[in-house]
Write a protein that binds this DNA or RNA. Structure first.
Lengths: 127, 127
DNA sequence: TCAACACTTCATGAGTAATTGAAACGATGG
DNA sequence: CCATCGTTTCAATTACTCATGAAGTGTTGA
């Protein structure tokens, strides 16, 4: 990931609704909105726009705007299936952005890395 | 770091000039702008606004605006010394943002973590 | 083919961010 | 105390982003 891409991704994420969409899509809907809750490591089916709209409680047109913003930033991919459009988080892009912040922008600064790895208060370590 | 803080930080970083400022400050100026180049693990002296201005090639007033945006987002701290104001990157806040993206927003998703840890083409691993 | 559905696009208006140059502020040195 | 230097604040302009509702596109099923 280069700087222009990172700037696009940062702009896309700097919005409450879009951050909520990412949060929703990263779990492929196993938190809410998707009926089946399988193990977390299979192929990500994504979530149709309508389900996302009802989850984040925004109008269809507004959601479409935010989804295309995330898609243009490379953070989401869209796939049409029947009359629905399924959106899926691009995990590589998301990781790429974090990698960019950590290693390009912060040059792998040890203090930044340490804080990034640190566990939040009363939470299990994920990294 | 919570969501409002993360949104502020993301907005602050979603700007070319401000990203450049962060990049400049993370090296405490050992890349350019600061005359002495010591080892990277001591106390960070920060960089005065004037030096930052000449490095990123923006007018003083515009720089002041961007610096205070970063400061309000919690990413920078300012310290007045004599007639100059030294700005220093808050590495904990920077790491906290990355931690938030990785573990809150992406829920520690293994694919995201893997991409985040992956080395860039022909670059040493930092994390 | 027609109506319903899922979603996107368009037009419009409101709010917010970015840029510029001038003026103000506080610290320093003569 | 006055001139200067480094920096911030202010006012005005421009540009962008966000939100809303209506109209449009394409798909499905009767």
């Amino acid at each position: 990931m280069d700087q222009p891409q990172a700037l696009d991704a940062l702009s896309a994420l700097a919005n409450e609704t879009r951050l909520q969409i990412v949060r929703l899509l990263v779990g492929r809907g196993h938190e809410a909105g998707c009926m089946r809750a399988g193990p977390a490591t299979e192929e990500d089916p994504g979530l149709p726009a309508g389900v996302i709209a009802s989850e984040v409680a925004v109008s269809a047109s507004r959601l479409s705007f935010h989804l295309s913003a995330l898609e243009q930033a490379g953070l989401l991919s869209a796939e049409k299936r029947g009359r629905q459009v399924f959106y899926r988080l691009d995990r590589r892009a998301m990781g790429g952005l974090i990698h960019y912040l950590l290693n390009d922008c912060c040059r792998g600064d040890p203090q930044v890395s340490a804080c990034c790895r640190a566990v939040a208060p009363s939470a299990g370590r994920h990294l």
